[in-house]
Simulated scan of single mutants.
Amino acid sequence: MAYRGEVLSVDELRRRSDAQPRGVVANIGVRHTAAGNAARITDLLRAGESAAAAWRFGILQTLDDYRSSLRRAGTTAAADVFADEPAPTGSRELDAAFAALAEHLAAADAWTPPAWAADTARTVPGQWFATTPALFRDEAVADSPPAFRKRGIFITRYALSRA
């Protein structure tokens, strides 16, 4: 039997999900934080993992944790994912990415970013294309959200899209 349904893009799935009414399901507090994820990727980097691999396990995991908290308990709880400053990971790129993500989400969801996100030390010397292949770097330069761009991090518009 052939599939007869509609195949939707990740962006369309997110759009439809975001359009659903939200209510606080349960306020059990924040389970995972940017600071905790930074500590875990510090261990990965020390074990020899690349910054690109650490991006997936740190930055994208923090994004997932934020969105889960947002759905479950609202904006205040979601902002608490970034309440504690992440300790340096050993990668200036990833340290800058945590700050960029906090600022980006704060702007998107209308909350005040944490003070630590404004630290100018959380900037990449030069440019970093995170996990963007060379083929898409022009697109990343054009599309990168302002919070990432100003820190020298360039990502495509799909880099923060999650299913």
Rank of each mutant, 00 (worst) to 15 (best):
R162N: 04
R46A: 00
P113L: 02
G5M: 03
L135W: 15
P86R: 01
R149K: 14
R122V: 05
T42I: 11
D109S: 05
R137T: 13
R31I: 13
D43N: 15
A35M: 08
D143L: 05
T76S: 07
W111Y: 08
W55K: 01
V30R: 00
A142P: 03
D95R: 10
V141R: 13
V10D: 03
T156V: 11
D138L: 10
D43C: 14
R15E: 03
A107H: 08
A73W: 06
L70N: 00
A106T: 08
T132P: 03
D18T: 09
R16Q: 01
A106I: 03
A53I: 04
I28D: 10
A100T: 06
A73P: 11
A2Q: 08
R31N: 15
E139I: 09
W116F: 04
R151N: 11
R122P: 03
T33Y: 09
T123G: 02
A163I: 07
V124K: 09
E139G: 06
F57Y: 14
L60P: 14
T42Q: 13
L160Q: 12
R4V: 11
A79T: 06
V24A: 04
A35G: 01
L45G: 07
V124M: 09
F98K: 08
A39Q: 13
T132A: 00
R157E: 12
L70R: 06
I155N: 05
F154R: 06
F148C: 10
E93C: 09
D65K: 12
V81D: 04
L44Y: 04
A34I: 06
R92V: 05
Q127S: 10
R15N: 01
A121N: 11
A147I: 04
D80A: 11
R15S: 01
E6P: 03
F82P: 00
F98P: 07
E85H: 05
A147Q: 11
T132C: 03
G152E: 07
F57E: 15
V7K: 06
A51W: 13
G126K: 06
G58Y: 07
V10W: 14
A97M: 06
A118W: 02
R56L: 14
T156L: 08
A97Q: 08
V25N: 11
A34G: 13
A19I: 00
T132M: 00
Y158Q: 02
A117T: 04
A140C: 07
I59R: 04
V7S: 06
V7D: 10
A142V: 13
T62E: 07
V24I: 07
A117L: 15
A2S: 11
I41L: 02
T33C: 09
D65C: 14
E12H: 00
P113M: 12
L94C: 03
P125D: 04
A142W: 06
A19Y: 00
V10M: 11
P21M: 09
G23P: 01
A83Q: 12
A87R: 02
A115E: 14
A52Q: 10
V10C: 14
R46E: 03
R151K: 07
G90T: 00
V24H: 07
A108V: 14
R67V: 10
D65P: 09
P146M: 09
P133T: 13
L60S: 14
A96C: 02
A51N: 07
G36H: 04
A51S: 05
A53H: 02
R56N: 15
N37Q: 15
H104C: 14
Q20H: 07
V25E: 06
S68Q: 08
A73Y: 02
L44R: 13
P114Y: 06
L8H: 08
L135V: 10
W111S: 11
A34V: 00
F98D: 01
